[in-house]
Design a binder for these strands. Structure first.
Lengths: 121, 121
DNA sequence: GCTCTAGTTAGCTTGACAGTTAAATAACTG
DNA sequence: CAGTTATTTAACTGTCAAGCTAACTAGAGC
């Protein structure tokens, strides 16, 4: 329970930073080295390195080693976890309105037993 | 561009806090007053009030006034925006692999001109 | 071994944010 | 109007994360 929560904290925190979102978006198009990722930003390399560490710690990216390069790779599972959480909330929310809708329709049918089914606003 | 970015920052930041996620989850089941929302938490009311302000500022919730109560209401659009951003990254990512897949299939067909179409693993 | 490139770690400053208590506002109730 | 309930604002504290510079590690190439 708390483990999942911690992971979600980390993922949403990671995505809360525009630099990190840009990095994720870039990695969505393919793996890249740290220098390639740093290119578009007016930020020092250590800054980028820190962002990558944040992304790595929450599982959003992974890094291998190729010669002196450390190519970064996007991992979709952490993204899935974030979407799943949001969708879960949305699902409940929608369900609730479906029930309300149903309830209103029932009320309507009680009042106008044989009238049509339309219940628009 | 930056406006959307700021909104996303705010939304992901809002969702990065477990208390706020719990509040969102609770509100997904229906509107609630500040005291009702505060109930489950070992936190003072001003603390909750602050969290609600964060959620309100990024558009995740809205608040009306009914007597001395201020019922909170979940707004799905901000949730949608967050999911949309993630899905956009995922879409690119998937597209890329579809292309790779296609490429591999073509390579395979070159090598084994008349063999079957299966190219698993 | 020296040097160039790629990247990380260490140490620091600054600013934002979570949480607190105490006091203020707003609306209902007698 | 005085009192009660619901909620916010103000002011303060402690923690944590973003950014920097400077120094370090790791591998490639001469």
């Amino acid at each position: 329970m708390t483990a999942i929560d911690d992971r979600l904290d980390a993922t949403f925190t990671a995505l809360a930073d525009p630099t990190r979102r840009a990095i994720v978006a870039r990695l969505a198009q393919g793996d890249a080295t740290v220098n390639e990722l740093a290119g578009p930003f007016a930020m020092t390399l250590p800054g980028i390195s820190k962002h990558l560490k944040v992304l790595e710690r929450c599982g959003l990216i992974s890094r291998t080693r190729r010669a002196q390069f450390r190519p970064c790779h996007l991992e979709r599972e952490a993204l899935d976890a974030a979407v799943d959480w949001i969708e879960e909330s949305r699902r409940t929310w929608t369900e609730r309105f479906d029930k309300l809708d149903e309830h209103l329709r029932e009320l309507h049918n009680e009042r106008f037993p044989t009238t049509g089914e339309q219940a628009h606003d």
